[in-house]
Design a protein around this nucleic acid. Structure first.
Lengths: 141, 141
DNA sequence: CTTACAAGCTACAGTGGGTAGAGGTTCAAG
DNA sequence: CTTGAACCTCTACCCACTGTAGCTTGTAAG
């Protein structure tokens, strides 16, 4: 039986975050001491570790909820899990592509700036000049 | 004199977002018609375009506020602007690195999964098995 | 057994960067 | 003059937490 702080330490989670996961139904309500403090068993620890690991991989809490549902049901299908993981990979790759474009644009801006070593900086000009960029509205970085 | 909807269309911003920028002090309070509707001039349009462009480059609203302050002051220094832009580039590059690591981990997971074509999927195992990953707590993706 | 204090508790507010909706008013074209 | 699209304010919501205030409980040392 572990106190909430032990769980927190073992999984690298904040105490409040654990209570938050309970609140939104990702973690089951644990048992309590007479005084009302939460006490967890190893299953809870595993479940939390799973959640944290999936979060580190960028899964949303909703996706994690799906994964947990699938793994809770004895008749879960591998294909469903695969779909979720692939969806996640696609999202990560899309974000990567956007960030890469961003990096190029920033570098270009800074390169232009450093060209005129003495006088007025061009960064603000570039930011101001919409036409100079490949503006696609809606960032989603 | 432009209505808020015109500004919105021209800069690819939602009407609500423009009002939000005003609320947090990024855009000045514009003049109003007798009936109370906002009316903007070309300076406002430029300022909003600047904000949107900077947002597309991933600058936070706080960073944008700094940039606008610098460009409002006649005695702003190029070096200050440069510092902000470089800071932004560093942040983007850090996020890129993290996302790249993430993509690798996801790919590895999916590769392991597809190895056993028939039986139970390994994705959930991998998510469960903390030791298999290069866990650094605190994602910041 | 008492005391000290770390760790726990609940409840609520705030973060960033907006977005959505209700319910009402104004503007401009026909 | 009428219509209806666009405007107005105000409030609440999104995600995934994080922080704070004010209180209670658990535990180890003396």
């Amino acid at each position: 039986m572990h106190a909430i702080g032990t769980l927190a330490k073992r999984t690298g989670t904040k105490v409040q975050t654990i209570r938050y996961y309970e609140q939104i139904g990702l973690l089951p309500e644990p048992g309590r001491t007479e005084g009302g403090q939460r006490r967890y068993d190893d299953d809870d620890l595993d479940r939390l570790a799973f959640i944290r690991h999936a979060r580190q991989l960028g899964f949303t809490l909703e996706a994690i909820r799906e994964l947990l549902d699938l793994s809770d049901n004895p008749g879960w299908s591998c294909a469903d899990v695969d779909v979720i993981a692939h969806r996640q990979l696609k999202e990560v790759e899309a974000r990567l592509a956007r960030l890469e474009a961003l990096r190029k644009e920033l570098k270009r801006m800074l390169r232009e700036c450093s060209r005129d070593t003495v006088s007025d900086c061009r960064v603000l000009e570039v930011l101001r000049d919409h036409s100079a960029c490949l503006a696609d509205h809606g960032t989603g970085v």
